[in-house]
Amino acid sequence: MKKPIEAIVKAGDLPVGFTAQPGSTVAFKTGDWRSVRPVLDREKCIYCGFCYYYCPDGVYQDMGAEKWYKPDLDYCKGCGVCAHECPKKAITMTLEEV
């Protein structure tokens, strides 16, 4: 098979200095990489914050007075670090429905 052209831009059309507008990762929803999602059993949760601190993508949001942490599923990649670190085994990685 002939290799398709990989180039996505012409040299002359690049911004000077190869710069870009910042914050582009916000628009890049990584949640669709996920095959399993974290599901929290709030009965077991002690609001220790381990999931919040350990999440490599920073998707957990502190719910404050409700005393729990909520993952933003637009960005959660389903890595399972939160479930692994949770001292109360309150997080279960559950298969995404297809």
């Binding site: 180039a7 040299a11 710069t19 870009a20 582009s24």
Partner: peptide, 28 residues
């Protein structure tokens, strides 16, 4: 300056160029 780091109008400088654009960045 043609490009300027400015808090009021932020830009990203020093980006990754994947195979799809590295050649073009060098050529530019």
């Amino acid at each position: 300056p043609v490009i300027k780091l400015d808090i009021a109008q932020p830009i990203s400088v020093g980006l990754l160029a994947p195979p799809e654009s590295y050649t073009e960045a060098r050529k530019a």
